[in-house]
Design a protein around this nucleic acid. Structure first.
Ligand SMILES: [Zn+2]
Ligand SMILES: [Zn+2]
Ligand SMILES: [Zn+2]
Ligand SMILES: [Zn+2]
Lengths: 128, 128
DNA sequence: CAGATATACGTTATAGTATTACATAGCACA
DNA sequence: TGTGCTATGTAATACTATAACGTATATCTG
């Protein structure tokens, strides 16, 4: 049932897996063009859409970029504005609290986006 | 110290306050053009930047749109994908939990984005 | 007052992100 | 064989945001 990836999806996923962080759609496009010849934006965006629906990639909204999903459960995306690192931090109870809080308002959530900018441990190291 | 708004900022803020939800930068631009004559994108984006720094507007990342800040404390943005309504829900303890969870990872957060898509109370009304 | 700095704004152009629309090729299968 | 479905190609366009440079005005300072 739609689980098999298409060749384009496979290629985009491989590029994202090979990167050490999120990539923009046009960075992906550039990589594919350098490999394959004539590739246009819809090729990349269609692949990203398929991969997102398959739950293997996600858009990092505040970066307008795309990253592989590293956790089976949605996490908090922690983005360091100093070194650029992006980590997904699991926090199941936080998401459950969010669910409860919204349910109390009568809101039925379908998709949560939690992204935090700041300074990672490496970049705080020994400093306030 | 920088608290007074400029004329452009005042105009953009008035437009956002008069809207019943977020507006895109180019929707704001269109409104200003219909009023004032030659207005260009930088005018809008500069005003939005100033207003954001003043803490009176915020970008709704998942909508690529801009909205007035309705709460003195950051909230959860609940977006109904059916009727388009956008509400900011206060949840101080949730933000505190988030802070704790990230601090445990050594991450010092500076800015949080929490946006949730789903179906609002009005749109669920009586249905599962 | 002359000169220096800072802020706001105008203007043009361009960069960056995403989608629409339509055509084609291949495969599954009645 | 023909019909529909999926994936893809291709061209154009829409949408979002910023860079770069010039100008006007206010404010300070000597
Ligand atoms: Zn860092
Ligand atoms: Zn539940
Ligand atoms: Zn609704
Ligand atoms: Zn603290």
């Amino acid at each position: 049932m739609g689980t098999a990836l298409t060749p384009n999806e496979t290629e985009v996923l491989a590029l994202l897996r090979g990167a050490n962080g999120p990539m923009t759609a046009y960075q992906l496009l550039g990589r594919m063009q350098r490999k394959g010849g004539a590739v246009a934006p819809p090729t990349v965006y269609r692949a990203l859409k398929g991969l997102e629906e398959a739950g293997v990639v996600q858009r990092i909204e505040t970066l307008r970029a795309w990253a592989v999903v590293t956790s089976p459960v949605p996490g908090v995306v922690a983005i360091c504005d100093y070194c650029g690192s992006v980590r997904s931090v699991e926090a199941p109870s936080l998401f459950e609290s969010l669910h409860q809080r919204l349910a109390a308002e009568g809101f039925a959530e379908a998709r949560q986006t939690i992204e935090v900018h700041g300074r990672c441990g490496d970049c705080t190291g020994g400093r306030a």
